[in-house]
Amino acid sequence: MGINTEQLSNILDNFVSSTNDVQGAALVTPDGLALAASLPGGMDEERVSAMSAAMLSLGERIGGELARGGIERIYVEGDQGYGVLTSCGEDAVFLVLASRAVKQGILMLEIKGALGELKSILI
């Protein structure tokens, strides 16, 4: 049975709309192709997807080189907000964008919850 992309999109849309201060999310393949995305207007989905996959993969390499063990997430902190990249099984990368106001503990819990849902569809 194929992957239900509509379900993936629904999970992302719900995640973005129901989590405080989350501005966008995307699920992409390790090759950098978008499986589903709910990104802020003006963001280039194709580009964001490629960069997300590139960053997670590079982060994992860096983690290995610096003997940091398995990488749980890549965290980008800017003065306008956060970008969090998490591996979603072997076949996908989960990107979440949040504003500076986000409560990080809650964000991590919400990401964990969303990952569980996304993985159940991808498997």
């Binding site: 090759d31 950098g32 490629a50 960069m51 993969s57 994992e60």
Partner: peptide
């Protein structure tokens, strides 16, 4: 080899980069 990127991802980055 250094980044762990797949060949397809690498080509995609070149293509999106070149487009911009």
């Amino acid at each position: 080899r250094e980044t762990g990127w797949t060949e397809r991802l690498f080509r995609r980055l070149i293509s999106t980069g070149a487009d911009s």
